[in-house]
Design a protein around this nucleic acid. Structure first.
Length: 155
DNA sequence: GCCAACGTTGGC
DNA sequence: GCCAACGTTGGC
């Protein structure tokens, strides 16, 4: 199968690019939305690349690049009452939630802000992040969009 | 299965 | 803190 590209949101107060720099790799857990769960289950492959995006913060931006290093596996944080991602409806027999592990490729020297991305709304028209009402924490990025955005990093 | 009420996300 | 846009829940 071919390589996929993704954009994955995280609130920096909860898990930031600097946390990933420190850990190098980490589970991407806490997904509690079925559409996103289905993406993880059906489309994530080892070796896929993803933008790390800081959301719900002062300057929303793409702040790093990471690689997917596992396929989807059960997100046991849903079973842990002390976890902020605890899901009282989940049981070990019925655990619908999945996570993948990610590894840092690199932190961007200069974040690509949401404002910058909006300035390129013409070539990036179909980027889910720029669409109204977009709330999914993981969205696909086409190869064209991926390479266009990467070129912004270098400009 | 419909749909109103409620909850969540996330930019501003 | 506001609000738009969804997603989820639960009564019927």
């Amino acid at each position: 199968m071919e390589q996929h590209y993704w954009l994955m949101k995280s609130e920096p107060d909860v898990f930031s690019i600097d946390d990933l720099v420190r850990l190098n790799s980490a589970p991407w857990d806490g997904i509690r939305n079925y559409q996103v769960r289905n993406l993880l289950r059906d489309h994530f492959q080892i070796g896929d690349l993803a933008f790390f995006y800081h959301s719900s913060c002062k300057e929303p931006a793409i702040v790093g690049i990471m690689q997917i290093i596992t396929t989807a596996y059960p997100d046991s944080s849903a079973l842990d009452p002390s976890s902020p991602y605890f899901d009282p409806k989940s049981t070990s027999e019925k655990l619908p939630w999945l996570r993948v592990d990610v590894q840092l490729v690199h932190k961007l020297t200069r974040p690509i802000t949401l404002a910058t991305l909006r300035q390129h709304s013409e070539p990036l028209t179909d980027l889910p992040l720029l669409k109204r009402g977009n709330r999914l924490s993981i969205t696909p990025v086409t190869p064209e969009q991926w390479h266009y955005i990467l070129a912004l990093v270098e400009s």
